[in-house]
Simulated assay, not measured.
Amino acid sequence: MKQNIYDHPIFFKEYTSLRESGVTYNDFVEQPAIKSLLPTLDGKTVLDLGCGTGHFAKYCVNHGASKVWGIDISSKMIKRAKMENNHDHIDYICKPIEDLELANQKFDLVVSSLAVHYIEDYSAVVKKVSGLLVENGEFIFSTEHPIVTANKEAKKWVKDSQGNNLHWPLDNYQEEGKREQHWYIDGVVTYHRTISTLINTLLDNGLALEKLLEPQSTPEGLKVMPKIVNETRRPSFIVIKSIKKN
């Protein structure tokens, strides 16, 4: 199933409003972690899988990338990317990641920010990425942490009578597969995978593990989003860097 929740009018409005606030887990946890793993971008060719509105693609060219391809299933996201983050060195393509075909094209770097957990066939995408990388090219991606996606009932923090977080309910960890939840709209589907599956699938497709992060908030995030301190108790994201080896 190729899910396109970002073209749903309610979801698109609420999600873009959240991201434009600049006060999100993406701003203070996930994006700083992704950027901390980036190589020097000077002269590099970059593929951004699930590029959204193009902020990261623009970041790459602003830091020296020679060419960036941004891919996203959402026509609304691509339209906004072309309006707000256009550049002569960026090409935006509206297409599901699973259907991407770039004949005779190789990349120094493939990056994906919080898109992998929407993809049913993770192995097929990793195989595709491996085939698109030059030797010693890098694949860096973030996904929802398996601790977050594990519970099949999509339960959140267990709270006491005063509303304080007691603990995170971890269950169904080894039962990989589809999870469904409400996020602005009903029926948002993600796919749970164990950490071992995330890593071993890379290894099986010629990618060597270079770094794994379970990131915490930046100091600024702790000041403006006090609740983000809960990342020390239960990480929201996992960020993985791998390198193509022959």
Results as ranks from 00 to 15, higher is better:
residue 95 K to L: 14
residue 165 N to D: 14
residue 9 P to K: 01
residue 202 L to W: 03
residue 148 V to F: 10
residue 61 V to F: 12
residue 185 I to L: 12
residue 83 M to Q: 12
residue 67 K to Q: 09
residue 197 T to N: 06
residue 241 K to W: 02
residue 113 S to W: 11
residue 19 R to W: 11
residue 16 T to P: 07
residue 84 E to P: 07
residue 47 L to V: 01
residue 87 H to N: 15
residue 99 D to W: 01
residue 230 N to T: 08
residue 179 R to C: 11
residue 165 N to L: 05
residue 127 K to I: 03
residue 54 G to M: 06
residue 241 K to N: 06
residue 107 F to Y: 09
residue 185 I to C: 03
residue 62 N to I: 06
residue 108 D to F: 01
residue 163 G to L: 09
residue 157 W to F: 13
residue 76 K to G: 00
residue 32 P to I: 06
residue 101 E to Y: 04
residue 50 G to H: 04
residue 105 Q to T: 04
residue 43 G to N: 02
residue 239 V to Q: 08
residue 83 M to S: 10
residue 15 Y to N: 00
residue 77 M to E: 02
residue 153 E to M: 14
residue 167 H to A: 11
residue 56 F to M: 15
residue 30 E to A: 15
residue 241 K to H: 03
residue 203 L to A: 06
residue 44 K to D: 11
residue 76 K to Q: 08
residue 73 I to T: 07
residue 98 E to D: 14
residue 139 F to E: 08
residue 85 N to A: 11
residue 184 Y to I: 00
residue 59 Y to W: 11
residue 115 A to F: 07
residue 145 H to S: 09
residue 47 L to G: 01
residue 157 W to G: 06
residue 51 C to G: 02
residue 80 R to Q: 08
residue 33 A to L: 05
residue 237 F to K: 00
residue 60 C to F: 14
residue 172 N to W: 13
residue 135 E to W: 07
residue 11 F to W: 07
residue 118 Y to L: 12
residue 10 I to N: 00
residue 91 D to C: 07
residue 88 D to E: 13
residue 157 W to A: 11
residue 99 D to Y: 03
residue 203 L to N: 05
residue 128 K to W: 03
residue 214 E to F: 10
residue 120 E to W: 06
residue 233 R to P: 03
residue 126 V to R: 07
residue 202 L to R: 02
residue 200 N to E: 12
residue 99 D to E: 13
residue 18 L to E: 03
residue 76 K to F: 01
residue 216 Q to C: 10
residue 163 G to I: 07
residue 221 G to I: 06
residue 242 S to A: 15
residue 88 D to S: 13
residue 119 I to A: 10
residue 11 F to V: 02
residue 17 S to I: 05
residue 138 E to M: 14
residue 102 L to R: 00
residue 164 N to D: 15
residue 181 Q to T: 08
